[in-house]
């Protein structure tokens, strides 16, 4: 915890420094200035990525939400997607597990590959894809079922448990990994909707883990939670990194700094800059990224 706080302080200091610097000198000579982003700056391509996306465009009817984004996500890393509101971060995330399919007017083009397989290929089954790529939503959405049944839902429909003892094991392990088991172990039959906001979100995480996905997509998972619950979730993400690849959309730069190894900055649907989290926040290479980080907008 202490290191994180120090990190925050140094980040704030750096931001202030940069602001004063920019105001006094023209240090921006080597920064990319174009408001028209022609190419993504930084390390958006990796070797052996878990997820590999190239030239992704997403349209809602006539309106285009994502412009030509190419980004790789590495194995067992946590990548944060940041940017101002409404700039397509959630849209991009939802393209990764084909949740955009549920919206009639939504069209996705480009190449998106999971472990080298094109996920938008006609032969790729969205059901199967979503068993491998799970999602946690902004507002906790537990089913109106018991805590046990919430977590058991996924394994049940996919037939992952051979018998009820197996299922019990899966549920308990998932709840433990989500850091919720100790708080609910005496009331597994209580309705999931009766938990607090933070507990509900952890329940949703447990629910997602129960299906043993390879990737977990998180769409602003802590934005509806109080600071303590948020802190618990952030610690959880760090632990989950051991077993899963995680992509997290977040509004909070501090959160991105705390939990992720790489960060991608989206601006009005364009992927502007990608890089190691520390470097992005201390030395952004694009003017737009710097403007966002120093709080000039968003």
């Amino acid at each position: 915890m202490t290191t994180q706080v120090n990190g925050l302080d140094s980040l704030a200091l750096r931001a202030d420094d940069m602001a004063t610097q920019n105001n006094s000198e023209n240090l921006t000579a080597d920064k990319h200035q174009d408001v028209e982003v022609l190419e993504t700056i930084g390390e958006n391509i990796l070797e052996n990525p878990k997820f590999s996306t190239r030239n992704v465009n997403v349209f809602y009817g006539e309106k285009q939400a994502i412009f030509d984004a190419s980004l790789d996500i590495g194995q067992n890393e946590v990548i944060a997607l940041i940017g101002p509101s409404g700039c397509g971060k959630s849209t991009y995330l939802r393209a990764l597990n084909r949740m955009n399919d549920t919206i009639d007017s939504c069209r996705v083009s480009g190449q998106l590959k999971l472990d080298g397989e094109d996920i938008y290929d006609k032969k790729m089954d969205p059901v199967l894809l979503r068993a491998r790529v799970g999602m946690v939503f902004q507002k906790p959405n537990p089913f109106p079922k018991s805590i046990y049944d919430n977590v058991a839902y996924g394994p049940r429909i996919h037939g992952l448990a051979k018998n009820s003892t197996d299922l019990d094991e899966i549920v308990i392990t998932s709840l433990e990994r989500a850091g919720l088991f100790n708080e609910v172990k005496d009331r597994l039959t209580a309705p999931g909707t009766g938990l607090s906001g933070g507990q509900q979100q952890r329940l949703c995480i447990a629910r997602t883990i129960a299906v043993s996905p390879e990737v977990i997509l998180m769409d602003e998972p802590a934005s509806a939670l109080d600071p303590i619950a948020t802190a618990i979730i952030e610690e959880l993400i760090d632990e989950l990194r051991e077993n899963y690849t995680i992509a997290i959309v977040t509004h909070s730069m501090q959160q991105a700094a705390r939990v992720s190894q790489r960060t991608a900055y989206f601006h009005l649907g364009k992927l502007v800059e990608v890089g190691e989290t520390n470097l992005i926040f201390t030395n952004p290479r694009h003017q737009l990224t710097e403007n966002y980080i120093t709080g000039k907008f968003g």
């Binding site: 597990n97 949740m99 549920t102 969205p126 059901v127 199967l128 894809l129 979503r130 068993a131 799970g134 999602m135 939503f137 507002k139 959405n141 537990p142 089913f143 109106p144 079922k145 839902y153 996924g154 429909i157 996919h158 949703c204 629910r207 997602t208 299906v211």
Partner: peptide, 24 residues
């Protein structure tokens, strides 16, 4: 949100309807 939660776990639409929506 409830439908999204179920579909996100890899349920088919009929499973979502039968096990989540109708009980709700």
């Amino acid at each position: 949100a409830m439908r999204d939660g179920s579909l996100g776990l890899g349920a088919t639409q009929s499973e979502t309807i039968k096990q989540v929506i109708i009980p709700a």
